[in-house]
Design a protein around this nucleic acid. Structure first.
Length: 487
DNA sequence: TGAAGTTTTCA
DNA sequence: GAAAACTTC
């Protein structure tokens, strides 16, 4: 039985459960628009709904001390990115952004009370922590007779909107992607345009006008390589669209700037995913379709997390529950520090640790190396990525790691194991990326750089000897997975 | 979104 | 004797 749509179904044979984007429009006098992972002022669903429904809107961001308290690094790059993106948002709002520091469960209801706002508008955040937080905020607001109205914004199709004919979640990417594409209509990616004239900056006790300083928040400025805010997102999107035709052929080359480089912006909502999809639909050629496939992977993993949230703690594939991964702590640490003796793996890990970014292809290579060559529990790698990646998104990170570990939705067949040296020749043919991050190998030629050990020429230059033999580890991994799947 | 080992094909 | 095709994990 297909699920019964609980929102208006638009008169278009393609759409299944597509809310029309005006259902938040019941009128109120004053509204709060609470921004979280949607740090922009254009094509913003909650802000558009708020400015449509209310005569005046206060836009607020809360530096969430619960989340910030868990960060170890006082110079966390993500906090710097968010802080500078809020400066950019404040500019877009002509200096009318409000910010606060604290527990949103207390701050948001207090602010709504001070402003006499009947409703708080926000976009869905389906991470488990955010769902609990928003449920509490809603409860607190309700005590006072106020509403929390939330909207889809972060993805084109959320939660159960793309499902099998039987109404169950897809468990494999390819049929999901087919259904996703078939379901897409122009309406799904229509821009949500807010009326910024209605945004005001009232004086309140619980939030201040303008951005706090980073030191108010308890952090220091970190070095980040990308331009923050929707200004940065816009220029990156423009430069990517100029070369999207080459995306199909260059996206797996670590020596080249061939990927979109937009993941950080999509994570923090400094860019609207609808705008990305509109750009895809407007572009010719294979590149844009390939990129759309990547955006659909993001939506797929969002769906998996929201429909099967236990994947946060447990493998998607039940066969892997309660297995003991035999990898050692020592091997994990060598992997984490980029000291495995496999040049591409080491270069990629050092790049991650230093910059907070890693090429998509290399994420697969290092994840495969940790889980297959070293047989370390994928969750240890997942946590390291979560700490380091500027674009860290729970759903994509978890999905990607489980995919590589062969425990996930759309599982890699467990016998599919990358050869890190073959992958190196393919993903890094010029070797420049390796030479940049492994200076020990700077004098290696284009062939030696992928596997410098057999020549013996570089023994004295300080590059670490390989910690394992891939051929041997491959056999161990095959035996391990065979045993797990036979249980 | 594999790799490796073996067999077959074609010059 | 290389390259393509096929098989296995």
């Amino acid at each position: 039985m297909p699920p019964i749509p609980d929102v208006a179904t638009v008169g278009d044979a393609l759409s299944v459960v597509v809310p029309t984007w005006s259902d938040g429009a019941r009128e109120v006098k004053t509204a709060v628009c609470w921004v979280r992972r949607d740090l922009r002022a254009s094509d913003h669903r909650a802000l558009a709904e708020a400015t449509r429904a209310a005569r005046q809107v206060a836009v607020v961001f809360v530096y969430d001390t619960t989340i910030l308290g868990e960060l170890n690094d006082r110079a966390d790059k993500r906090v710097t990115f968010i802080h500078r993106s809020l400066d950019d948002l404040d500019l877009a709002l002509k200096g009318r952004l409000l910010t606060a520091i604290g527990d949103p469960c207390a701050v948001i209801p207090k602010l709504a009370h001070e402003l006499g706002a009947e409703a708080v508008f926000a976009n869905h955040d389906d991470d488990p922590y955010a769902l609990r937080r928003d449920a509490r905020v809603k409860e607190e607001l309700a005590k006072d007779g106020r509403e929390l109205r939330t909207f889809k914004d972060h993805v084109v199709f959320e939660r159960a909107e793309v499902a099998t004919a039987g109404g169950t979640p897809f468990r494999v990417y390819t049929p999901y992607a087919r259904a996703w594409r078939a379901q897409l209509s122009a309406r799904d990616v229509e821009a949500c345009v807010p009326d910024l004239e209605k945004v005001g900056a009232p004086t309140t006790q619980s939030a201040r006008a303008g951005n706090h300083t980073l030191s108010d928040v308890g952090f220091q400025e970190a070095t980040i390589w990308l331009a923050p805010g929707s200004t940065g997102a816009k220029s990156r999107l423009d430069s990517f669209l100029a070369r999207i035709g080459d995306y199909g052929s260059l996206r797996d080359d670590a020596d080249t700037d061939g990927t979109s480089g937009l993941s950080v912006h999509l994570r923090h909502g400094t860019l609207s995913v609808r705008e990305c999809v509109r750009a895809c639909l407007g572009a010719e050629g294979e590149g844009s379709s390939k990129w759309l496939a990547e955006l659909i992977w993001r939506e797929f993993f969002h769906m998996v997390l929201s429909q099967m949230p236990w994947v946060v703690n447990e493998p998607f594939q039940p066969a892997y529950h309660d297995v003991d991964w035999p990898g050692s702590q020592e091997h994990f640490e060598r992997w984490r520090e980029g000291q495995t003796g496999y040049p591409l793996v080491d270069a990629a890990m050092r790049c991650l640790n230093e910059t907070g970014w890693m090429h998509n292809r290399l994420r697969m290579v290092v994840a495969m190396f940790l889980t297959k060559d070293l047989l370390v529990d994928y969750r240890k790698g997942e946590v390291h990525f979560a700490e380091k990646l500027l674009d860290f998104e729970l759903s994509s990170n978890n999905g990607g790691w489980q995919w590589c570990a062969s425990t996930g939705a759309d599982a890699q067949p467990w016998f599919r194991i990358f050869n890190p040296v073959t992958q190196s020749r393919r993903a890094c043919p010029k070797g420049d990326f390796i030479r940049r991050w492994c200076p020990e190998l700077r004098d290696c030629d284009d062939e030696q750089v992928h596997w410098p050990h057999k020549s013996g020429l570089f023994a004295g230059q300080g590059y670490v000897a390989p910690i394992v033999d891939h051929a041997v580890q491959r056999e161990k991994a095959l035996a391990f997975h065979k045993a797990v799947n036979r249980r």
